[in-house]
């Protein structure tokens, strides 16, 4: 078991016939991910990778190939369109990798998601999601992962990899790794993913990676304090970031109460979460509160 995606997930790739998208989709397929279709408007009837049917619309991919999950590599001006199309087509889990979607477009997507309560959006501006050994959707490097029992969630791609790598090197695998993305408006939040990991019988411990900007980590911390019995470790990036500047991620900006690294670290510690001092101590922090042998 795992959360959100597994070996039965049927993936449709939106915008994977382009250069970047095709490279990553082929990596995903090589990992064993079950891609069932591609969608590129105007390219319907073609084949992707000589085998995968290409459709003009997501609806066709759902009707003809039973796709239930989509991955979006569509360029920023059209990516929100892609998400909305997937919602209307009945896709249940939408993974949007695209970086640089206008905030206004995402605000409209978010309204649409409120009208489609069963649909889960991961991202945008994220590395994707992986259940090691079963399904890898997005741009995460499969070789650093290992099937196991730690759930990882993060706003940052490369910090997710740090966490996976440190755990894998010590022999501890991951149940699912979720990159929730670095944008100010996102689909699943830290809190949403923590709840899923908490309910997942095959996840024993949780590693949560956050950063400056917004207060999502604090909301997750409050929930963890009340409801989560599983050991949790965390890391917050951006202690040295100057206020008011966007640090690469559109959502990573200190402004107002609860958005700085100090505020978040304090809230996490108050919730009994082990906070890693540096990104080199992610596995160490988790192992300080989690006994894998128990």
């Amino acid at each position: 078991m795992s959360i959100l995606v597994n070996k039965n997930t049927r993936v449709v790739g939106q915008g994977i016939t382009g250069k970047a998208g095709s490279k990553h989709a082929l990596n995903n397929i090589a990992y064993g991910t079950n891609y069932v279709a591609a969608v590129t408007p105007g390219k319907g009837g073609q084949k992707f990778n000589d085998s995968l049917p290409v459709f003009n619309t997501v609806r066709e991919a759902v009707e003809k190939e039973g796709a239930n999950t989509s991955v979006i590599f569509v360029p920023p001006p059209f990516a929100a369109e892609g998400i909305m199309e997937a919602i209307d087509a009945g896709i249940q889990t939408i993974v949007c990798i695209t970086e640089g979607i206008p905030v206004r477009d995402m605000a409209l997507v978010k309204e649409k998601l409120r009208q489609a309560p069963g649909v889960r959006l991961i991202g945008p501006n994220c590395p994707g999601i992986m259940t090691p050994g079963e399904c890898n959707i997005g741009i995460m490097p499969g070789y650093i992962a290992k099937p196991g029992r730690v759930g990882i969630l993060s706003r940052s791609g490369t910090l997710t990899y740090e966490g996976m790598y440190q755990l894998t090197q010590r022999g501890y695998g991951q149940s699912t790794c979720v990159g929730i993305g670095g944008d100010p408006i996102q689909g699943l939040t830290h809190l949403d993913v923590v709840k899923l990991f908490n309910e997942d019988p095959d996840t024993d411990a949780i590693l949560m990676i956050g950063e400056i900007g917004g207060t999502a980590e604090i909301e997750a911390a409050e929930y963890i304090k009340e409801h989560v019995k599983k050991p949790v470790a965390a890391f917050i990036a951006g202690r040295t970031a100057p206020p008011g500047r966007r640090m690469g991620h559109a959502g990573a900006v200190v402004g107002g109460k609860g958005t700085s690294a100090e505020d978040k670290v304090r809230a996490l510690q108050a919730a009994g979460i082990a906070v890693a001092e540096t990104p080199s101590h992610l596995a160490e922090a988790l192992l300080s509160v989690w006994n894998p042998a128990a």
Binding site: T158, L159, F235, G238, R239, G248, A252, T278, P279
Partner: peptide, 17 residues
């Protein structure tokens, strides 16, 4: 010089640390 925004921020942090 780092790849990834989160890792880039963390690299600044660890230098300070």
């Amino acid at each position: 010089l780092v790849n990834g925004a989160g890792l880039a921020m963390s690299t600044m942090d660890i230098i300070k640390h």
